[in-house]
Amino acid sequence: MLNAFHSPQSVALIGATSEIGQSILKALPQDNLENCFIVARDPKRGAKALAEILPDRTKLTKVGFHAEKTQSHQGIVDQLFADGDLDIAIIAIGVLGNNPDLNAAANALEVMNVNYVASAHLMLLIAERMKLQGHGQIEIISSFAQTRPRVDNFVYGSSKAGLDFMARGLNDQLEGTGVSICILRPGFVRTRMTKFLPEAPFTVNSDAVGKLAVKLLKDGQPIGYAPSILKWLALIFTLLPKNVFRKISKRK
């Protein structure tokens, strides 16, 4: 249960090796934190990193999973609720793909399956369980890239746009149930995943994203950008004529 400071007792980080996910946990109030579920393909690696972040009193439960094996999702979610209420779930799984051409067909399946299919499916399953307990927050990592298709990463952008779209619809449906979705739309974040890419304007570190993500949760805001200024850039991007947008969005 959350206390009066919005400090959670039980949290799940799905995609526990994600640097953004870890930064969110780092920024969360930890005084009240008793249980943390570390869900990752390699949960030991996630646990090692989180053990340095979280207080000793927090019980770390490692849950191994493969995001693309969607038939295992229900069992994973059941484990998160086995010992009682889950206050906050952070879904931080996401890939860019290994092919240098981010829009190559060879990349697309994995990107779509992990970023959209698996994330959205887990979000729906967790929301159903949280509805039964009458409370809970799910934070998903969308992206600034979902604002408008860009030539250099429209496959990735479309996977995040799908997730974002579903999260907004689900959040509306959940009104009055005590459960809510927070959509975080980071711009370019310096992480292992992006180190091969040229930095974009308004690039931030994952710690800054974590702080903004926690503020969203605490204030109960449904959507937030990291950094916040991207909110206005998104508006401008949406309004730009197509030929102008195409020209400026080519990074190469």
Partner: peptide, 9 residues
């Protein structure tokens, strides 16, 4: 009474 915690029931 303190209005810090909200609860749907």
């Amino acid at each position: 009474w303190g209005r810090t915690l909200r609860s749907n029931s």
